[in-house]
């Protein structure tokens, strides 16, 4: 029967109705368009001109060339600089992973057990609105080392997000899925492992995406306040020592670090949800 071909959803190419012939998208993704290129070039040119003309606050800012020179001369080959990357990455990693390891099971537990939910969820709802940075002083008082307290704050940044996401998603699992699994004879354990867990994976992914972004935000601020290492500290020291290029080197490094982490999280998420491919 040929009914299959006509029934399969044909995914329309995502071309806009400009009347132009559609560009092959796969290639287009790697070749930046002339618009993208010129907008980035214009940004740097404009930045450079503002600094040259010392327009307002730009009098205190380094030019792109100064930043690039400073980076190549003093940072690219500097072990200290790369240690800053390592320090920040470690904190993000520990805090983020701990948040997932504790948050996912807790979300599942509260989502599936009404009794525990009634007992513990209100506390989570109460603590959740407190911004992670508000935990800084308490965290420093509580933990024996600064390192631990920064990791803890990072953890807080991702923890509530993942708990709430998993919890809400367990509670919105389709009844039909649970009923069907039961009518086909699945045991409660099997339903938990094979229906509930896969159902919440998309929400875990969302929690991870949001979590990694918050984690970087938090770790940078925490480093500026409390630490003597990391990319946040590097940026802050640039300001304190009036070395303009360092401030910008720090900013770019942080942006890049956040971007790289998001890429890794995206890859992990794709691996978790093979059924979402091409969707």
């Amino acid at each position: 029967m040929s009914a299959v071909e006509e029934d399969v959803k044909t995914v329309p190419p995502a071309g806009r109705a400009t009347g132009r012939a559609l560009r092959p998208r796969r290639l287009g993704r790697f070749l930046p368009s002339w618009r993208a290129t010129s907008s980035v070039v214009a940004f740097f040119v404009l930045w450079d001109l503002m600094v040259r003309w010392e327009l307002g606050g730009f009098a205190h800012i380094s030019s792109p060339l100064a930043v690039a020179t400073a980076f190549v001369d003093g940072y690219l080959a500097s072990a200290d600089y790369w240690m800053s990357w390592w320090a920040s990455f470690q904190r993000v990693l520990y805090g983020f992973v701990a948040a997932q390891l504790l948050g996912i099971p807790l979300g599942l537990l509260l989502g599936t057990r009404p009794l525990l939910n009634g007992l513990f969820y209100p506390v989570i709802e109460m603590l959740r609105p407190i911004p992670p940075l508000a935990w800084v002083p308490l965290s420093i008082l509580f933990w024996p080392t600064t390192e631990l307290s920064i990791v803890f704050i990072t953890f807080i940044g991702a923890f509530f997000i993942i708990v709430i996401n998993v919890h809400d998603s367990v509670r919105s699992i389709k009844n039909e899925h649970l009923w069907l699994a039961r009518s086909m004879g699945a045991s409660p354990t099997r339903i938990f492992l094979r229906v509930i867990i896969p159902s919440v994976i998309p929400s875990i992914a969302v929690g991870m995406t949001l979590g990694i972004a918050v984690t970087w935000n938090v770790v940078i601020a925490a480093e500026m306040i409390a630490s003597d290492s990391g990319l946040g500290r590097l940026t802050w020291e640039g300001y304190v020592s009036h070395t303009g290029p360092v401030v910008i080197i720090g900013m770019i490094s942080i942006g890049l670090a956040g971007y790289l982490s998001t890429l890794v999280v995206d890859i992990v998420e794709k691996k978790m949800m093979p059924w979402r491919k091409g969707h």
Binding site: K174, E176, H177, L180, S183, P198, S199, I201, M273, W275
Partner: peptide, 12 residues
Amino acid sequence: VVVFQHGALFPW
């Protein structure tokens, strides 16, 4: 076994 109105295949 029931076939539901809105469909209930396991998407995963």
